[in-house]
Amino acid sequence: MSGSAIDELFERTRAENRAALVGYLPAGFPTKELSIRAIQAMVEGGVDLVEIGLPYSDPVMDGPVIQAAAEQALAAGARTSDVFDVVAATAATGVPTVVMTYWNPVERYGVERFSADLAAAGGAGLITPDLIPDEAGEWVDASRSHELDRIFLVAPSSTDERLSMTVEAASGFVYATAVMGVTGAREQTSSLGEALVARVRSVSDKPVGVGLGVSNGTQAHEIAAYADAVIVGSALVRCLLDAPDEDAGIEAVRALAADLRAGVERS
């Protein structure tokens, strides 16, 4: 049996002896069409796996940058169903595409229906920042029947017991949150990330991606030395938030993705 699109990606990047680059942008920010263009620029810049954020009214794990993007997207009329259009356009570029979403929009849409529509759009899985495996029974069943990957999070505070259980429940890769805190670019990468990756490796050979706080190629390079994937979100979103106009924002996303990709490839 062949693995998922994400399994194949990590087989390839491991063979190339490099970390994969994972980039996050929200669907519908600043509009659906522009979010599709920005994500395509991110892929052209060198992102190996795309995380598409589903804007949510109460993003408790996100810092000011992603909050602002979600608010703007919702104010502009973003709907849950839009995310599937963005997934379809992104998956068509050939990169594995996952959705990162808080749990209530999925539950409201219907876990089974969401899974079916995500799979139909070519999506590879879900990252669920506020859904722990303990509460994920329905999602685990739906993900299996639609062959979607379940990307759960581990944290520096996770006990050994919780870490083992979460890694066991995850598929595709394990998302290691490198700091105790919310999303957002930080000046320095945290030393907690490396120790956390080592703990995951001691219980599993599943790929581990490290996120929270990564904003440039130098930081990406540091993390690539010990992780299977480097995950970048807020810094990419900021390119769009801070740009003087849409085209400049999209070019800034492309340039940052290229810088990050060079960072993960540098030996």
Partner: peptide, 13 residues
């Protein structure tokens, strides 16, 4: 139940 980031689960325990 608990619908919270994993980082807060151990502290909640």
């Amino acid at each position: 139940g608990r619908f919270m980031p994993e980082a807060l689960i151990a502290p909640l325990d």
